[in-house]
Design a protein around this nucleic acid. Structure first.
Lengths: 238, 238, 238, 238
DNA sequence: GATGAATGAGTGTTCATTCAT
DNA sequence: TATGAATGAACACTCATTCAT
């Protein structure tokens, strides 16, 4: 699996970051606008983000924004496309180099996902798509193809490895994928949509929640009780 | 200049001809408006739904809408109450009358939730809240209070019952609630946000997915392993 | 000066008050509506008064209001016309029967005006006219003719009497009229327009204010110092 | 069906032809808008003035108005400041620099007030407040604070100076203020509310009326009788 | 006559988009 | 290229007026 093609429809969108700040960085404009727009779209949603604020945060005038992006809609699409730069090759490679048990592999996958996506700004993109997919079907298709599909393929490979190596019971792999996905999406929802109104009682520690989920999952998935749940040994005899 | 077309400027001169007859249907209006509003809120989101269109879809004028609901916000709350919140007393009663095993109780909860909410338009409301909660804090608080809190309380009661009766292992109940919630939210996300672009490979049968999830959960939750719906064995022999 | 013609364009507007409350008082409707409208127009102004509230206060439905008055504008006109029933003949007669000094006459005029107009609901009509005259020129003309003119004539007669009897110095009578009018209008303004925001320091006792004004006036108007200001005797010798 | 007229649905296809050229006049706009707003507020009252008409009269679009003034209320406040409130520092300074007799000071105050406020459109603002204060409490508070309070303080200072210097008799200063205020308010009422229907008999020359009032006042206020403007005698001889 | 459900033009305000400079 | 002043279509909500019952 070679590096994913980067679909960037605007010039100098990502490379600009590396550029030297010479001649008042003309080439960097689109990148700065995209960064500002990402922040604001995540924070305020599509409708709630005013184009003037995007421009101001990028340090340019309102007119300049429309010089680079013909409309707010196009800006939004560009933001989503631009933000989904391919980390998948790297993650794929990491997981393929993994040599431990598949249970451990799943634990590591979840942990890394939280550290690299869930806990970072990148999670905002996912939230954005969940919110606006209906309004931008074309974009949803793009997201499905560029993010959801590779992501699910990655999970699928883990589960398949577990089954192939006799570590997991035979299963409907696709449903297994969804089982892994569900707590991730749940966390994103809490973080970006419901976090504001969570009652005081249910402070949720994401890392702990994910760990708990993985162990619960493994109980259901594994052929032999995983080390994290010795108490189930008796149960296994049935 | 004899041949210029003369356009009548007298008010209501032409409109009167087209005049739609006014119907007086006081009893039926709120329901019709609620139905129209549910459709549009789900389809276009809260901000994207224009009150005039709600009225038109219900076959009345803009003014009539505000005759029954004093503001867009109250209209939305009424929709939430009508679709979801108002049913909690009934659902609570049903579960309290339940006499079977707690595993079976959880299965029934999930099944009924899908039939009554997940599979219906009401599910769109939950998706909508996930999308727009950040932009409308008052609506979010309302939803939290009227839907999230009672819903989670309901799940909590099920889990607690399992623990109390020695059917489930002791657990952090709140995390257990989230474990039950996660696949529900995952389904809603798929249906409303990603459903439009689902690839051919992953056709998902929600009922089957939920059943699978419950069984996986039960493997992790129960004191004694619970094979899929043992209660059905008896039923078969009948 | 015979009794002023009462211009009432609506049936049973005033006579209704005397009527016996038999047969659910059909004839009283216009009168009740006018009374309710007067209250509300005075309290909330023309634009601020909603026709539905007028109807409700009169104990009828919104439709009924428009049955009696073809529009809000006509209702307003009717209110003003109806409320200015002629007290002037009575007041004229009273003053013509007055036998004391003209200074005393002026004092009594002011005192009675406050008791009968300034302090009562009738003052609201004047405020109404001051506020809305520009929007209803036709009505303003009516008010000018029916109220302002007779009122000023009355004052004029007092002043003229003072001059004729050698009690007041010769003066431009019309300006004298305005001098008498000014504190009256000032009081109405305070009561109806600025009263809401008067600072705590300047509590104004209308009767005291008017008395003060009259004495100040008399200092300027009288040939000999009036009894209320003995300290001025010395000054008079100049 | 070949002969159907095809109506272009492309946006701005026709409008572009009629397009009025946009002028950039940032410096001039606020003044133009303020002038237009003053005209309309005086003519139609606060509630009766539509913001779009203010914009149109200033030759700009509705949006431009809100570019300079964030709301109708702020526009009104700006008009008040521009017309009246903003001049108090200057007027205060003038009076503090005054070195003549307090009687003369009062005369000058009245004269200047008429020339600068009473005779100008600014007077309409005061009339407007008298009309609409009850319906817009926040505006009333603003006007009280920015205009009424400084204005009355100014008068109070004059009267106090007269008393302190032994020119005026001791008095209840606040009532004195009202005595000065009354003819001013009377004039405004006549001009804006009753002026439209003034009968032929009472042509009023405001300057003359005010002068008369001041002299009448001074008769009552001064320790030694002050015949009309003695200071003018000297002036004549010059 | 009386009702009150229904109407829809009108209002302040926002904001993506345009365009003269 | 870049600016930011200017635009105008939208939108939630109000309320005088109408009319079926």
């Amino acid at each position: 699996m070679p590096s994913l093609p980067i679909t960037s429809t605007h010039p100098a969108s990502h490379a600009a970051v590396v550029q030297i700040k010479r001649e008042r960085r003309k080439e960097a404009r689109p990148g700065e606008l995209l960064a500002a727009a990402l922040d604001l779209f995540v924070e305020k949603g599509y409708a709630g983000t005013r184009s003037e604020e995007v421009a101001r945060r990028a340090g340019v005038s309102k007119g300049t924004l429309f010089l680079y992006f013909p409309s707010k809609e196009e800006l939004f699409k560009a933001v989503v496309r631009d933000s989904i730069a391919g980390h998948f090759p790297e993650w794929n490679a990491e997981l393929e180099a993994f040599t431990g048990s598949t249970a451990e592999m799943l634990r590591q996958f979840m942990t890394l996902w939280w550290a690299r996506v869930g806990a970072t700004k990148a999670s905002g993109i996912t939230k954005l798509m969940m919110s606006e997919a209906n309004n931008f079907p074309e974009l949803a298709a793009f997201y499905q193809q560029e993010v959801m599909a590779p992501g699910q393929a990655l999970i699928r490979r883990i589960l398949q490895r577990g089954v192939d190596r006799g570590e997991f019971r035979p299963m409907n792999i696709q449903y297994g994928v969804y089982t892994v996905l569900a707590p991730m999406i749940f966390l994103l929802t809490r973080k970006h949509a419901m976090g504001c109104c969570a009652g005081g009682l249910d402070e949720l520690v994401p890392e702990l929640y994910l760990a708990t989920q993985v162990e619960t999952l493994l109980h259901g998935l594994c052929c032999t009780p995983t080390r994290a749940t010795p108490s189930l040994k008796k149960a296994k005899s049935t």
